[in-house]
Design a protein around this nucleic acid. Structure first.
Length: 117
DNA sequence: TTGTTGACTCCCG
DNA sequence: CCGGGAGCCAACA
């Protein structure tokens, strides 16, 4: 048995993907939120790392994950960032002229009954 | 096991 | 409002 209290047999990456899949269309969450749901509120960077390792074929709505500032964080991936913005807009998420989203309006909060296990 | 890296966040000034 | 610096976590060589 693992001496480390792993909440799941799946890797941290898999847990990130599972959490992101729960985000409904037209809503967004921050990397920090996902980390919080996984039980590691300070693992926001690891969440981003997980998405960077996302396989080509997947059913994870990665575009619904943005940074705490409410903007797209694709560092070094300008083209992908543009794509992310297009998808979000197609889902009804409004961007300001400066390219940031109103988190108070679009941030998704899971029901208390939601589990990320 | 140690060091490096990175789609992050927060705190200052 | 914006930029710089430090902290934190997980995967990988």
């Amino acid at each position: 048995m693992a001496r480390h209290p792993s909440p799941s047999a799946a890797s941290f990456y898999e847990r990130v993907y599972a959490a992101v899949r729960k985000v409904p269309r037209g809503s967004v969450v921050t990397y920090g939120q996902v980390a919080l749901y996984l039980g590691s509120p300070a693992a926001a960077r690891a969440v981003g790392y997980a998405l960077s390792n996302l396989p080509g074929q997947n059913d994870v709505p990665w575009w619904r994950v943005i940074n705490a500032a409410g903007s797209i964080s694709l560092k070094g991936r300008g083209a992908a960032a543009d794509l992310q913005r297009q998808i979000l807009e197609s889902e009804g998420v409004h961007f300001d002229p400066e390219g940031h989203i109103d988190l108070n309006r679009y941030r998704w909060w899971p029901p208390e009954s939601t589990t990320f296990d």
